[in-house]
């Protein structure tokens, strides 16, 4: 069962990463980037590393998304 979970999550991660990079709208791209953080959390927890999973849950899907959204707000403010 563990092998199936790892395989499935890796396939989902690869699809989400490719979709995040080829989106036209930057907002969609940033929200899909958040999905990469969530998939990484599942994988880290499956790999018996709960400390790393906690860190990735806070940073990878929380603060990184905030940083990208703030950058988007600033980069569009004067157009």
């Amino acid at each position: 069962m563990i092998g199936f979970i790892i395989l499935f999550t890796f396939i989902a991660l690869i699809i989400v990463a490719f979709a995040a990079l080829v989106q036209k709208k930057l907002e969609d791209s940033i929200i899909l980037f958040m999905g990469i953080g969530l998939g990484s959390v599942i994988l880290f927890f499956t790999f018996n590393a709960p400390d790393v999973a906690l860190t990735e849950a806070v940073i990878g899907s929380g603060v990184s998304t905030f940083i990208f959204l703030t950058a988007l707000k600033h980069l569009r403010s004067e157009q």
Partner: peptide
Amino acid sequence: PGGGFQGGVIIAS
């Protein structure tokens, strides 16, 4: 599981 790095970032959020 947890510690200074995680707790610090949670407080910052």
